[in-house]
């Protein structure tokens, strides 16, 4: 079925993005299937001192409201989560989130590497990682961790990115499964969801 090699083995999707990813991410969220089965965990670089507004901005167009999880909140199917400002967001064994104020990584807190690495450790081959446009190398190690533990990796096509440093950095160190334009990522997610119904 379709152009991607998919199945219903996946338990979660993590999406990382930075400079130039906002349009792409809102497009993805606006075209998600209604009643999407998998949880989506977004880690997007954002202003550290602005706690409010971002989650609302993402929710406007999304098919489902985006929420910022509390520490130790359970990860629920079909929810869309966003790493809160000035915290790293980790996935714990036992399907819960943990927050942390540890050192910035790649000049970022939240850091995509942390979200992806901890999610990879929890979900292993049952995780999908997607990395979008961005101006630094955050997320490259996270994507590698996902691939190393058997998960599936996708980067936004660098030729489409406003700033392609981030997906390119991932491509440099990992054999990424799919290089896709935003339109195709939307297609991928909709096709994936069909395996869950």
């Amino acid at each position: 079925m379709g152009k991607f090699n998919l199945s219903n083995k996946y338990k979660a999707i993590t999406i990382g993005g930075s400079a130039g990813s906002f349009q792409g991410i809102t497009k993805i969220l606006s075209k998600l299937p209604k009643g999407m089965s998998l949880p989506i965990v977004l880690c997007l670089h954002r202003l550290k001192h602005v706690r409010n507004g971002f989650v609302e901005a993402l929710s406007i167009k999304s098919t489902k409201p985006v929420v910022e999880p509390y520490d130790k909140e359970s990860i629920k199917r079909g929810n869309i989560y966003l790493a809160p400002s000035n915290y790293h967001l980790s996935v714990e064994l036992g399907n819960k989130f943990s927050l942390s104020t540890e050192e910035m990584i790649n000049n970022s807190r939240p850091a995509i590497d942390i979200t992806m690495e901890t999610a990879a450790y929890t979900y292993n081959q049952k995780l999908i990682g997607i990395l979008l446009s961005g101006a630094n190398k955050d997320g490259a190690k996270g994507m590698k961790a996902i691939k190393d533990r058997g998960g599936l990796t996708i980067v936004q096509d660098p030729s489409e990115c406003m700033i392609n440093t981030m997906p390119q950095a991932a491509l440099d160190i990992t054999d990424i499964d799919y290089i896709l334009k935003i339109e195709e990522i939307v297609e991928f997610l909709n096709e994936l969801d069909k395996y869950y119904h």
Binding site: E92, E102, Y121
Partner: peptide
């Protein structure tokens, strides 16, 4: 201690 951050530390 929370496993994810403890492991990282």
């Amino acid at each position: 201690y929370a496993m994810s951050s403890f492991r990282r530390r």
